[in-house]
Design a protein around this nucleic acid. Structure first.
Lengths: 337, 337
DNA sequence: ATGAAAGCGCTAACAT
DNA sequence: ATGTTAGCGCTTTCAT
């Protein structure tokens, strides 16, 4: 196995000192143009790559961000991750990925595991378990230790850190207006994420708007488990005279649509369905689901850029910010024209 | 910002040398039981975590694996990643994730970027671009430099490295038998991955079996782009008298199903559909798709365990192995009982 | 059973 | 413009 080139090796070959070579590679003004050129050439020729562990140790920065996701087999988080990854690789950052699997313990373990020098900061969406339990010391520990933290989508209100979210409540409210304009009066909320902040916000937005307007009715079908959800949904179809369904998450949306098929209810003629999250599941359903697009990839990019700024201005005191992205409605086959 | 505890700090507090503390934490036989206990207690109390960069530099191992995936918004790769991640975190390994986005260049960039000390090895599925181009020097470079490489699913036949795959060709063959046993004679292959090794293997398996048996007919509909695929599919529905469709990937499967709906073809009565990959899209379609389950999470776990073994026996000469997992058919709503 | 010292590869303050 | 040196935090060999 051949020896990987190091600064020392380059220096020997060029009859220079390591510090000169180091500076040359950094395009330092101290070094002559000629030397820089010679160094660059040999480095390229030998395929020199700086040893990241050594640089991290010395510079006290790893150029690595831990991304903690509640799940990964989920188009929304997948798209966010793509956005993060894209931006990260553009800025020559690495990301390590952790999957909390909605568990408080795993989330905490990961944060502890990376809390000493392994990463410069964390990007994360809170696990369902964490939001249910309401225990947030592990976030505080991270912040206290000087590591950067940016949360997205599933954020903790009471926590003083940067957050990138979408206009969940406002979008819910807009959906009510949209459905009302189509003549619907009896709206049903379907959700498998009612324990999670964004689910609650969306529901609140819808609820508030329904109360503001006259002559609207609201039902709620909510359960995390597929079979219970479907039983509830079927009950609601049979006893309530539902005009439309707002599904707060992709799974609820697709399950509601399938239940409607099963019961012979015509979509969108007899029932309109709108679903949160522009997922493949929604894009490839029949008919294609009308969705609230959260611009998830953009969200990922914004999140990374935020933490990058925090890192660049490391020692300045910074005002934490909540950045809200506006969602948009993509009208497809489950709503009427 | 408080100072993170280091070995030196622990040593000072305990009036010991750093080497003693280091050994104690490693439960070395050289150190007295009593000292070990004192060290362990203080370490716990102060929340000591070894600095990974320093350990990497010293030990010449990072306990980090790069995972290069063609895409991430894809349930198959998502599930594999879950399996890898699960196993990695269990063995106290980190994974950094790279998304090649099916591009040869990105794949190569990533491999170069991590080829000097940043990771101990690579787990990857080849990008479509790489398989099309047929350029594999970047893989050879990795292997030559002593880094470990394990490929899964989309592997390079000619490359001498460890591979974890599923029985693509054999499973294709079994599907033909299955459909024939249901009385189908005219089978159609639908694919959006015909440029990729696994797509070709599946097709080959099907094709061979069709030729072996008597009285079967085979059509092929293949295109990566949705709209061209759908046009072809519609044409095939209208002119060929198809009895069943074998979709080589999830997207092809769901698009074929939707097209059947659109044309008023009854599934599974008039047309059976079987689809590769047990994705959420297939699970939540209407009716639910019958699928070939690749046990993707298991595949991820096996892949990680393989690279771990390679790493543990670093310097032994190892025979590269191809490990083949057996797929299984999950019969659901798009095939007849 | 414990400690001193060297060194992994890199950077930067401080010579020259 | 180039070089010397110290040190980031850890492990390990070789004393003691």
């Amino acid at each position: 196995m051949y020896q990987k080139p190091t600064l020392k090796l380059l220096a020997e070959k060029l009859q220079l000192s390591t510090s000169t070579v180091s500076k040359a590679l950094k395009d330092s003004a101290e070094i002559s143009v000629d030397t820089k050129k010679r160094v660059a050439e040999l480095a390229k020729l030998m395929g020199y790559r700086p040893n990241t562990a050594a640089a991290s140790l010395r510079n006290r920065e790893t150029r690595t961000i831990a991304v903690i996701l509640p799940e990964i087999v989920n188009d929304f988080f997948g798209q966010v991750l793509m956005g993060i990854e894209e931006e990260a690789s553009q800025h020559n950052y690495k990301i390590v990925i952790c999957i909390s699997n909605e568990s408080y313990e795993k989330e905490m373990d990961y944060m502890e595991m990376f809390s000493n020098g392994a990463v410069d900061g964390f990007i994360m969406a809170a696990a369902m378990g964490t939001q249910e339990l309401g225990k947030f010391e592990h976030y505080h520990n991270i912040l206290n230790s000087g590591l950067k933290l940016v949360m997205f989508d599933r954020v903790i209100d009471s926590l003083d850190c940067d957050k990138i979210i979408v206009d969940d409540a406002a979008s819910g409210s807009r959906l009510v207006d949209f459905l009302k304009s189509k003549g619907d009066r009896n709206i049903c909320i379907a959700s498998t994420i009612s324990k999670v902040s964004v689910g609650q916000l969306r529901e609140q937005g819808i609820r508030n708007r329904v109360e503001e307007l006259d002559g609207l009715q609201l039902n709620v079908v909510a359960h995390e488990e597929d079979s219970s959800f479907l039983t509830q949904m079927e009950g609601s179809f049979k006893k309530d005279n539902i005009h439309s369904i707002i599904a707060l998450d992709q799974r609820a949306g697709i399950m509601a649509l399938n239940k409607a098929h099963e019961l012979g209810i015509k979509v969108p003629q007899e029932l309109q369905i709108i679903c949160y999250s522009n997922s493949n599941m929604a894009k490839y359903s029949y008919p294609q689901l009308t969705v609230v697009d959260q611009h998830s990839r953009e969200l990922g990019k914004k999140t990374f850029i935020r933490i990058l700024n925090l890192l660049k201005n490391k020692d300045e005191v910074q005002v934490t910010k909540v950045h809200t992205l506006k969602t948009s409605l993509i009208e497809r086959g489950t709503t009427r024209k």
